[in-house]
Structures are given as structure tokens and as C-alpha cells.
Nucleic acid binder design. Structure first.
Lengths: 157, 157
DNA sequence: CGCAACTTGTTAACGTGTCAACCAGATGGG
DNA sequence: CCCATCTGGTTGACACGTTAACAAGTTGCG
């Protein structure tokens, strides 16, 4: 259709900076966790949710919290179960259901990993931003997620 | 080693917002490109670099621009070559080398994809942030990347 | 109740990313 | 020149994510 509105100087700088940060950060976080704690970032997130929850979680509930495809979760849990980090149990109120519990070994790993993970986050992000920048970051993230949700449900009007 | 400095309220809000934005954004960008243009985000980035370059690029040069593992690039190029998007050519100045050229079909796809891609970026990020927020985003991204680089080369002092 | 529609979870097949091993060509000190 | 070492690139094995298909259980409307 009409002409394209390409990004101007400032817009391009912001976008490229965001993309570069995003890739670098994801790579860094995952690498640190793997090398020092023997956990992928995915493993970490699963264990974090399980250890924060008061009771073992239903599989679909865990998937909702993580925003993961159900098949992804199922396969990942199979691998984690094989490594002894989680345990699948039958659900008593729904015969289809699986209940996921963290094992002692999983608890040990996440508790060892968490302080290092927080230290990494401080080291590369949090401790080097001003309070105003932290506020701005939260605000930007919220706006973007709002837009993403608007895209996914493209209005009913 | 002493006690852990957990994230306070503001820090946690910023970090979680960033992570959520990051995952949502990556998923959205990739999905849009795939469904509407038949390109993954990875494909897009490869073609973007190739089409911006004046001459066909050496493989290692492309890898450096993308920050990709050499094996990842090699495998991805094999798939893209099979789809007719790029062409591998022998390098005349280094018998080991490969030179990567974009094909007519690749050019066509990236040129169709670019305007839609920019529109998506505007739709979910750029057009909904204030100039101040764009500046803040660029500044934050730069700071974080600086810290990441400092981590990778942990000083020679 | 009886059956269709939906939900929960697993599996198979495929595309993709990483690591380690490898091959071949380039490079540099003896 | 010769060999050790480095560099550019490919390959194989494996971990991971997505899609589609499926099995099994639940729900609700007739």
C-alpha cells in the first residue's frame, strides 16, 4: 500500500539496542546457570515455580504460569524427571491429571542457584541502572506486553 | 558469600517486566514473520545482513555480524540454500572460505518482509513509547551490553 | 443415561541450536 | 622447507521447541 514508515535515527537506536540486549542477556543468563549450577534457564524457571508454590502443581497450572506449550512442558518434565529434579504423581481429583512435585535434589539445586542467579541479574542489569531507569524499564515492559496482548486478541468490535 | 541481596519491590518489577517483554516480543516477532512472510526471525536476520551488504559476505563475517556460532550458521545456511534463499560460492582469495550470496528469491522475500516487520515493531513497541522512553530504552540496552561484555572479558588487571 | 465436545497430557516427526570432533587450508618460527 | 598451530567451515550427536495427532478422562445438553 502507501509508503513505508521506516524507523528514524532514534527509533532505530532504541530497537537495535533492545534486540542486542535481549539476545546477549538470554545467552548470558542461560550460560551462567548451566556452567555454575547445572541448570538451564528453563530448568530454573520450572524449579522456581515449583519451589515457590505451597503445594505440588498441576501440570496445566505450571504451563500457564510459564506460558509454555503443553507439549514443551511435558517433554521438559520427562527430562527433568529422568535427572531426578521433579516427580510426576497421579492426581486424585482428576484421573487425567498429573501433579508435579519438586524433589529434594531439585530443591537443593534451585536453592544453590537462586543467590547466584540474583547476583548475575544485579551484575549485568539491576545494580547499574538508576531508580528512574528501573521505573522506565518496568513501564516500557508493561506497555509492550499490553500491545502484544492487544495483537493476540485483535478486538471483538 | 555472606547474605544474599534479594531484589526489592522496584527491582523485581523491572526485572520481571523485562523478562516478560523479552519472551513475548521474541515469540511475536518470530510468529509474525513465519506466518505472513514464510521466514523465521533467524532467516530474516541473515537475509537482512546479506541484502544490506554491498558485496556477498564471507561466512565468518556474517557470523560475526549475527553473533552466531559458526556451526549454527553453517547448518542454517544449508537449510536456506536448500530453500533457494542463499547461494554458497567458493572464495577465490582463501581456498577454505565460503562466500554467501543472496539469491533473487531471497531478495524478493526480504523486501516483502521488511515493511511488515517494521510495521510490527511500530505496532508493539516504537509507536507506543514516548521519545524519552525510546532514549531510556537505548541507554538501558547500551548499559546492559556494556556489562555483558565486561563479564565476558573479566579484565586483565 | 448417551453421546458430542472439550480438557489434560503424551507422543512422533521435524526444524533448530550447541558442543565436540574433524578436515582442509593458511601461517609462522625453526 | 617443515611442522606445529591457527583459522574457516562442515558434520554428527544430542538437547530443545513446535505442530499435529492421539489417548484418556470430564462435562454438559438432549
Amino acid at each position: 500500500m502507501t509508503e513505508v514508515r521506516w524507523l528514524d535515527e532514534r527509533e532505530q537506536r532504541a530497537w537495535r539496542s533492545l534486540m542486542a540486549m535481549q539476545e546477549g542477556l538470554a545467552e548470558f543468563i542461560d550460560r551462567q546457570l548451566r556452567h555454575r549450577c547445572g541448570l538451564s534457564h528453563a530448568d530454573y524457571q520450572v524449579l522456581a515455580h515449583l519451589s515457590e508454590a505451597a503445594d505440588p502443581l498441576r501440570s496445566f497450572e505450571l504451563g500457564r504460569l510459564l506460558h509454555w506449550e503443553k507439549s514443551r512442558l511435558s517433554q521438559h518434565l520427562t527430562r527433568m524427571e529422568k535427572r531426578g529434579l521433579v516427580r510426576r504423581e497421579r492426581c486424585h481429583t482428576d484421573q487425567r491429571g498429573a501433579v508435579i512435585a519438586i524433589t529434594a535434589e531439585g530443591t537443593e539445586l534451585i536453592e544453590a542457584a537462586a543467590p547466584r542467579h540474583v547476583a548475575d541479574i544485579r551484575e549485568v542489569v539491576v545494580d547499574h541502572l538508576t531508580p528512574a531507569e528501573l521505573e522506565a524499564l518496568a513501564a516500557i515492559g508493561d506497555k509492550v506486553r499490553e500491545r502484544l496482548e492487544a495483537q493476540d486478541q485483535p478486538s471483538a468490535g
